[in-house]
Nucleic acid binder design. Structure first.
Lengths: 369, 369
DNA sequence: AACCGAAGTGTATGCGCATACACTCGCCGG
DNA sequence: CCGGCGAGTGTATGCGCATACACTTCGGTT
């Protein structure tokens, strides 16, 4: 790691000008093959790697796209210890149900995966930021200075920050409907999905008084889902206002608590339609433990399509969001925006998939494999 | 998104020099409070966000750390369609066991999570690259030009590329023992973990002829694990050479195939110790399906500690790797390296945790709730 | 034989910032 | 009353590259 090589070093070593060196990387075809080989030999000899900072400055674009998410994982508060410990082995007799604390945030992982995939496909590099307790404003500004465009989860950052940052680079909001702003948006068909699920429960399963279990108030996702639910009811002549609604917060823990409340209040309702999977799983946890059979006595449905819902007993009927596609779409929109800054705001709504499984269907095939 | 504001614009607007503007961001305390407020007002007025490219160039450091992983997910080959479709809802009757194809790569997600966490803690931004089919060499070089240091999975990139890139920035290798190189390394206690598990199976469970199911040949992780296994045998006076070994590839599918082979060959062995969880889960899939009771007839163990192993039936006895810590440690080592480039190579080995669960323990509590 | 264009290469400049250094100003001690 | 000093600010420079433009060859035209 002596002195880092620069274009000048390579140019001198190869006996050409720096323009030629630069061209070898940027537009190889503009350089005669023999010269190119010659330069590349020098590149190898000197261990030259072009500086993205310099390139970004000169070219006025970085080739990087940003992805910012708030940290809704209750971030396992990792201790700050140094990594000075030795390779030891702790033995733990692991009792069942020792908590579902790990990996709550599949959502972000999936979106990240999709973003990463699409960004590279489009020739960009991805920079990620997950808002820790630390000041999200600084974080977003920091990222904003490094990228050509930034995608972030809607409502994860104050509007004025968005406005500020958007004077420099394009912004794409993930999972939030347009709301008077001119940003680009990428969402899933929340309303349509919950509506379809509602129709299924009402029409196919014959439940005329399903109970809705919401997520945190004022999240747009939750609001839309509830809207779809109400629409399905209305279409069947049922007044949504006549049915009780429980308010969760998208956590499994809260789902359990809600199930407790419900059971305490009397016989469980015929169907519980939850605004997300975690809540539904928490409810199933408690219902099952208290001897309420799902779905025979109570049907439970979720929304999201997380992995746990496929591994639970019974497996969870849900609406699967295309989370990977959400990330992909965000990057795709970003690219499109960068190619034409003047085009009108883009708003994408991705399709969802209704997964009918045993938490709602009577014929529960055994989960043996 | 008119003309992006620069230091010059802010300086002019605030009636100060660009040095003062720069200082407001870099060393706020060097600027009189009143001046600072004044400048910040201009910053807000102009929507100024400092350019990381320019800063990186001038300061000779980017403040970004890189993380590169190859793509061992068989990348679900996402189609290349544009996102022009409408919000529709597909209904799918989801039959059980419709595959475990999703999310195979928890390993990377966890490492990423830890890396991201630690990087921000240390004041760095994280840039991720997942090697798609596309040329990993280009990808690594690309990232290398953008960051102050790069962590990558060992053996994911040819040695000469590493050597080349390392002339520019420090490299940290994840999950691979040092091997004659001078790079920094971060690993887990593979050998110790498998050794402890081996001792448990031999001593506590009284199995004197456990069968090892390996991973892909020549991965260092697998090699170390097998080494720990052999050592445990040797300590009990058992000759490892006398026992059969099956060769897997860390995939669940292959685990299933191996189970098939084993059953075809005769009565199943008393214990199967697998080099990773996926393989073990695949084996359990088939054993269970064919009526072999786990663990009563055959004990099965894994290695990794992935989530599925906690949700399977029976739950999987395994050695849990500290995957999040692996990422954290990589970033931590990187920071340490950057603070003192001359210090001797660092090699960290993180402790593991032996999780004793029902795939090896007789007393299998029911998996209810 | 003078001319022309294409292909290949070099020269010069600026991208936006950090920072070394110079400078100013007010205050203190001698 | 002068010298010195520290706090605060400005000036000048260079970081490493992309790229517009100028220049040189050289083969083919007329």
């Amino acid at each position: 790691m002596q002195k880092t090589a620069t274009v000048y070093d390579v140019a001198a070593h190869a006996g050409v000008s720096i323009a030629t060196v630069s061209r070898v990387f940027r537009r190889p075809d503009d350089v005669r093959a023999s010269t190119r080989e010659h330069v590349l030999a020098s590149v190898r000899a000197l261990g030259y790697v072009p500086s993205a900072s310099a390139r970004g400055l000169a070219a006025r674009r970085t080739g990087v796209l940003g992805l910012y998410f708030p940290d809704f994982d209750a971030v396992e508060d990792v201790d700050d210890t140094d990594f000075a410990y030795s390779p030891r082995v702790d033995v733990v007799v692991d009792i069942p149900d020792s908590g579902d604390v790990r990996r709550p945030n599949l959502y972000f992982d999936e979106v990240l995966r999709g973003s990463e995939l699409q960004a590279w496909r489009d020739g960009f590099t991805l920079m990620v930021g997950v808002g820790r307790g630390s000041n999200p404003i600084e974080m977003v500004s920091d990222i904003a200075g490094r990228v050509d465009g930034l995608a972030l989860l809607a409502h994860s950052v104050p509007d004025d920050v968005l406005e500020h940052v958007s004077r420099r680079i394009p912004i794409v909001l993930i999972a939030g409907e347009r709301r008077g702003d001119d940003f680009d948006h990428v969402t899933v068909a929340n309303a349509e999905g919950m509506h379809a699920l509602g129709r299924h429960v009402i029409d196919d399963l014959g439940v005329r008084d399903p109970v809705f279990v919401s997520g945190p108030r004022d999240t747009p996702d939750d609001r839309e889902r509830y809207g779809g639910f109400c629409q399905a009811l209305a279409e069947s002549g049922i007044d949504p206002g006549s049915l009780p609604v429980f308010h969760g917060d998208f956590s499994r823990e809260r789902g359990r608590a809600i199930a407790g409340e419900i059971l305490a209040a009397g016989p469980p309702p015929r169907a519980l339609m939850c605004s997300n999977d975690q809540t539904a799983l928490g409810i199933i946890d408690v219902l099952t433990a208290r001897g309420v059979r799902v779905p025979e006595e109570t049907i439970v449905t979720g929304f999201d399509g997380i992995e746990e819902g496929r591994l639970s007993t019974p497996r969870l009927t849900t609406v699967q969001q295309p989370m990977v596609d959400l990330g992909r779409a965000a990057m795709w929109v970003m690219r499109s925006r960068l190619e034409d800054l003047a085009q009108p705001p883009i708003a994408l709504r991705l399709p969802v998939k209704l997964l009918l499984r045993e938490s709602s269907e009577g014929s529960s095939p055994s989960r043996s494999q």
